[in-house]
Structure formats: C-alpha cells, structure tokens
C-alpha cells in the first residue's frame, strides 16, 4: 500500500528523466497554519514526495536548524496530532513519509498503533532515524503488516556488509546520508558521495534517495544525477521561518522548490 505509492512516485519522476524531489518540513513550524501552507506549497511546487518531520524534544540526528524548528514547533503547541493533520492535508496528492524519532513511536502506542494512526492520516512510510538495523526488526514488521514502509538510513560510516543487510530489509526507499554528521546545509557535496550511492544502488532493489547537506538547487541537481531521489531539508525549514506569515512561508518555500525542480529536470 504505502510501498506501492512510494514506488510509483519515484517511477513517475524517472519516466520524466529526473530524480524525485522530496522536500522535508517540520510539522507545526513555525506554527500550525504555516506548516499546513508549506505542505500545500510543496505539492504545488512540484514535490514528488514529502518528508514530514514530527517534532521531538531531543532529535539526535538533526543539526541546529531542524533542532531549533522542533523546539519552536513544540513551543507553539505542536504534537503528534499536528503532524497527522498536516499529513492528512496533502497525503491524497503525494506520498508522505513521516520522520519520527523512536520515542514518538513508543509513546503513541508502539509500532502497530503508531502505524495505524499514520495510515489513517494517509502516510505511506516512516523514517525512524534512531532505529538502526538491529533495533528495527519488530517495528519494520509491524509497520509492514499495516502497510507503512519503514525507510532505513545508510551512512558513509556503514560497513559494506551492514549496508547490504540494510538494503535487503529496506521498504519504500533507502535513505543515504550524504555526510558524516547531522542534518544541515553544507558548502559542498562530499566527493565520496557518488561511490556511496553507486554501491547502495547495487545493494538495493528499491530507489535510493540522498539527504543531509543539500541546500542549493545546484547541489540538488548534482546529487540528482546519481541518485533516484533528492531530499532537501534545513534550507527549506529556514525559508519557512523567514516569511512571518503562512502565505509568506508558502511563497518562500515555493520559490526555492520551483527552482530546484527546474534544476533537477535540467
């Protein structure tokens, strides 16, 4: 169910001769209304899929921009329910992949109940960035039973043996972390990325998308030439906070995303 929607979105982009564009956003940031406007703007500006962050108090995989956005969203009153609301608002138009830390899965009834809630909001998949291979088995099975794809991450520090195991168990797509570090904009795409993406594609039967550190349309295009999908996070989160109103937030992200979409097609 979720897997098929994700597969179709990647396939449609591939048919157009480009990588899929997957913008990230933080639910409830800078406030509920703005995040609903940002989600709609993502769809209107050419997002093939959306990665939707569930705000959490202690996000260990995130750099300063997304960490601060989570803190601000929580201060503005966001909860898991806010993330589900944002998910529901766009999930009939593009596949939505939730990005939720392990404690959020646990606190909302465990894997089966979390999957049920996510599915009811139309989510296609979920990334749990602090649930690496070795911890993920039960959650992956429960998610799969409900029709929610558990998308795993591969890092530059992942050993080749482990990478093959991660790819074999992956559902939806494989998320390649571009650099050794947390999320956030970087000046350059690492030179070692191409080899990592090539190796991961060789291990994987499903699409391979790259995230972390992609902050310009040119970087997205560069990564799009080697990967099946490109994830842009912190740069867009920063844009969402700059407007000062829901409409301004939507305009700011739409502007960046439209340019990126053009660059990917180029």
């Amino acid at each position: 169910m979720g897997e098929a929607r994700i597969a179709a979105a990647f396939a449609a982009a591939k048919d157009e001769g480009r990588a899929a564009l997957m913008p990230y956003m933080m639910a409830g940031f800078p406030d509920r209304e703005s995040s609903l406007a940002v989600a709609a703007a993502y769809v209107d500006s050419g997002a093939d899929l959306i990665e939707l962050g569930v705000p959490f108090s202690d996000p260990l995989a995130d750099g300063p921009t997304i960490h601060a956005a989570a803190t601000a969203a929580l201060e503005a009153g966001a909860t898991f329910a806010t993330a589900l609301e944002v998910c529901r608002s766009v999930s009939d138009r593009v596949p939505v992949v939730l990005m939720a830390y392990a404690n959020m899965v646990l606190a909302h009834g465990g894997a089966a109940e979390f999957a049920r809630l996510a599915l009811a909001a139309g989510a296609a998949g979920a990334i749990v960035p602090d649930l690496p291979l070795g911890e993920a088995e039960e959650v992956r099975e429960q998610f799969a039973a409900a029709g929610l794809a558990l998308v795993p991450l591969v890092a530059p520090t992942t050993s080749p043996e482990r990478r093959a195991q991660i790819c074999a168990a992956a559902r939806g797509f494989v998320y390649v972390v571009s650099t050794v570090g947390t999320t956030g904009e970087r000046a350059e795409v690492p030179a070692s990325l191409a080899a990592l993406v090539t190796a991961t594609k060789a291990d994987s039967e499903i699409p391979v998308a790259v995230g972390f550190g992609i902050g310009t349309a040119a970087q997205a295009a560069e990564v799009g030439r080697i990967a099946d999908g490109v994830i842009v996070g912190s740069r867009l989160v920063r844009a969402a906070s700059e407007g000062g109103s829901p409409a301004a937030a939507a305009d700011a992200v739409a502007d960046f995303l439209s340019q990126t979409r053009v660059a990917l097609a180029g």
Binding site: L60, A61, A102, P129, D130, L131, P132, L133, G134, E135, P152, L153, V154, A155, P156, T157, T158, R162, I166, V177, V180, G181, T182
Partner: peptide, 8 residues
C-alpha cells in the same frame, strides 16, 4: 542502540 546509523 537507539542512535543514528552514522554512530553504529
């Protein structure tokens, strides 16, 4: 070990 893959 509930940490990002990078640390494993």
């Amino acid at each position: 070990r509930y940490v990002p893959e990078t640390l494993i």
